[in-house]
């Protein structure tokens, strides 16, 4: 998919909460020892949720973009604080944006990239000048379940507008691939999601990402070696590396955007945060492949080229690296208090 007019990223903002739960803590409580696949996971504080993290990431993105009017604000998440009442309108109010199309999107872990595609379409068609796409989650994992090791909190926001010379990167092309796949779900009124264990890999994650990325490479005529960086959805540390190798990328291309070992799986925030980490390091002219995955299931793949503007805007916002470094470890009981697993 390509927009008629060239569309670009003008600003981005990441948000990783301050607290980290070592996965040895989860294993200590539920398994008697050991650890999870990731070293730690990022945990939202007791006064944080999807709204607060979306606002923080969005404020950074808007500051970097230097764009005053946002014609659309989409928040991609599966952990809305309200079942009925939009997250996006609270974000809009906090940003002082009122004449804007605001909506929440849900597609498990890929809700953010579909927000990016929708904003790209709105800008590319001329309906709006610029819009905001946010991916953020306070991911839920049932206590003691395998998911609890990785289910984490965090997100990123992107201001997308016309390509006008002030952009930091150009969105050249994207593809999507979906199917009805029951790898992971959460029914209405249920607090925690369920999953089909190993079924989440081959017929879900790998099948959809491989199809989306292959379609992108076919449409663009590019090869994996043409990209400097590749960012894949990160449900655990292993899957993104394995899908990269299967598709012909190497581990060096994946390394920069691979955050799961340090913060876990931030669901809708996962691949957008990986992209933010890459943009922190990338140089003008370099190509980035971004591929999300959402259970249910689907994948969006993007071909992005870094622009000159990235050098001018570097240093405006805190980097992903600085957010990884600014942290405090907590134990399982504090985590249980913060995430409402402890009922008073």
């Amino acid at each position: 998919m390509k927009s008629r007019e060239k569309v670009a990223i003008h600003g981005y903002g990441a948000y990783i909460p301050y607290y980290r739960l070592p996965t040895t803590e989860i294993a200590r409580v539920w398994k008697g020892g050991g650890s999870g696949p990731n070293v730690e996971k990022a945990v939202a504080a007791i006064d944080e949720d999807t709204v607060t993290m979306a606002v923080e990431a969005a404020r950074y993105a808007v500051r970097m973009a230097g764009i005053e009017r946002l014609g659309a604000i989409f928040v991609g998440t599966e952990s809305k604080p309200y079942a009925v009442k939009p997250t996006s309108t609270i974000v809009a109010q906090a940003l002082g944006q009122h004449f804007t199309l605001a909506a929440d999107l849900e597609f498990a872990c890929k809700a953010a990239t579909e927000a990016m595609q929708i904003v790209t379409g709105l800008v590319g068609s001329g309906m709006i000048d610029a819009g905001l796409a946010i991916g953020v989650d306070t991911a839920q994992g049932r206590p003691g379940d395998d998911l609890e090791y990785t289910a984490a909190s965090g997100g990123a926001a992107y201001v997308i507008g016309r390509k006008d010379g002030n952009q930091i990167a150009t969105i050249e092309c994207s593809t999507s691939f979906v199917s009805d796949t029951g790898d992971f779900w959460r029914r209405a009124h249920e607090r925690y999601p369920r999953h089909l264990s190993r079924f989440t890999g081959e017929p879900a994650y790998f099948y959809h990402i491989e199809n989306a990325v292959k379609a992108l490479l076919e449409e663009t005529g590019l090869r994996p070696s043409d990209f400097k960086y590749a960012v894949f959805h990160q449900p655990n540390p292993r899957f993104p590396v394995e899908v990269a190798v299967r598709l012909g990328f190497n581990t060096d291309q994946v390394k920069c955007g691979l955050l799961n070992p340090l913060i876990g799986n931030t669901y809708a925030g996962s691949s957008p945060l990986g992209l933010a980490a890459v943009l922190d390091e990338a140089s003008p002219g370099e190509r980035i492949l971004l591929a999300s995955f959402g259970s249910g299931a689907g994948s969006d793949a993007f071909y992005i080229t870094v622009s000159e503007g990235i050098e001018r805007k570097r240093g405006i916002n805190p980097t992903v690296k600085s957010m990884l470094e600014r942290c405090a470890k907590i134990d399982y009981s504090t985590y249980a208090k913060f995430r409402g697993k402890l009922i008073k």
């Binding site: 007791i46 006064d47 944080e48 949720d49 709204v51 607060t52 606002v55 404020r59 309200y82 906090a94």
Partner: peptide
Amino acid sequence: FRRIRVDGESGQI
């Protein structure tokens, strides 16, 4: 930007 308080299980945040 943070939660200041929550009005119970069913009230507003």
